[in-house]
């Protein structure tokens, strides 16, 4: 067994152990902390699977932004843990559930191991058209060209989620500042970080979007970093979240899919097909779409994390 293999096995065991901890931990807070660590470990697994784009997304969104959301929720829900624990199903039911889940996992493992290797793939087809698109990262080509319809709809999913989250405000608070009322200003250290980090974060985010055409990175990863910067600034209370009635906020939310749709509809006219790029124009159009998608993701994710407005508009 080589060193790399030993490390892989160690990593897999660690991921499983932390996942088990997340499920089994007695306190919900410990469970959430376990989940954040789990997400980071999982990004390492993604790197080992030659999926650096996914690793970046998992670290930024799956672990990072989700972690912020879950930690703030678990603190507010602390009182509900004891009553819920009383509803825990009995040993027999849990044993039955465990048996069922073991069977499913074992069957799944068997099925996956039995799959042909090398398996079915679209890699050659995906690689064939990179030249005409002018991008070097095949994942970007899949997301913004071959399956751009999925990506556009997925951004619509995010917008519906924002509307869903906002719809949980009370009637009187509609239009007000997004997110819960916050207590006293936090300690200086956080404010210091929130002043220092964003300029750096913005540079890193733009870099990641820009190189995303040819290397790992892209709108989702870059947008998530921008969102993280916004969240740090909001947590340090350097500035208030925007009021949800603001037109500019709503424009930022829909900019990504809107530009996608405009380019898509223009495609009807010039190359003759919805969402198709005219020859020679693919690269600039892809960058245009990526830029607006980044903006929209950077606006959407913090709105989903901080939740509905908790005070009336001014």
């Amino acid at each position: 067994m080589s060193v790399i293999q030993a490390l892989d096995i160690g990593l897999a065991l660690l991921v499983l152990a932390v996942a088990g901890w997340t499920i089994a931990a007695r306190e919900a807070f410990a469970s959430v902390v376990g989940y954040v660590a789990y997400g980071l470990l999982l990004s390492l697994v993604w790197v080992r699977l030659f999926a650096v784009d996914v690793a970046l997304t998992e670290a930024a969104i799956g672990s990072g932004v989700t972690g912020v959301l879950l930690i703030s929720a678990v603190v507010r829900l602390r009182k509900t843990e004891a009553p819920a624990a009383a509803e825990r199903p009995g040993v027999v039911l849990r044993a039955l559930a465990a048996a069922l889940c073991t069977v499913v996992a074992a069957a799944l493992a068997a099925v996956v191991l039995l799959m042909p290797d090398p398996g079915a793939t679209l890699a050659p087809e995906a690689g064939q058209h990179l030249g005409e698109l002018g991008v070097g990262n095949p994942i970007t080509a899949v997301l913004i060209a071959y399956r751009s319809f999925d990506t556009m709809l997925e951004k619509v999913v995010l917008i519906l989620a924002v509307i869903g989250v906002w719809s949980l405000a009370s009637d009187g608070n509609w239009g007000g500042v997004a997110g819960p009322r916050r207590g006293a200003r936090p300690e200086g250290a956080l404010a210091f970080l929130a002043q220092l980090l964003p300029p750096l974060g913005i540079v890193v985010a733009i870099h990641i979007v820009w190189v995303g055409a040819n290397e790992p990175g892209g709108a989702f990863q870059g947008g998530a970093i921008l969102a993280a910067m916004a969240l740090i600034v909001l947590m340090a209370r350097l500035t208030e979240a925007p009021e949800i009635r603001r037109r500019w906020l709503r424009l930022a939310l829909i900019a990504g899919p809107a530009v996608f749709l405009v380019v898509g509809i223009a495609g009807f006219a010039i190359p003759g097909s919805f969402l198709a790029y005219p020859a020679g124009w693919a690269k600039p159009l892809i960058l245009l779409i990526e830029a607006f998608m980044t903006l929209s993701i950077a606006a959407t994710l913090p709105m989903l994390v901080i939740g509905p407005p908790d005070r009336p508009p001014s």
Binding site: L153, L160, I163, R247, L251, L261
Partner: peptide
């Protein structure tokens, strides 16, 4: 076939516009 695209994007455009114009 273009009718199929329109059937999908007409409500999407309506949803996005409704949110912005409010």
């Amino acid at each position: 076939g273009y009718l199929l695209v329109l059937a999908v994007i007409v409500p999407v455009i309506g949803m996005l516009l409704s949110l912005v114009v409010g």
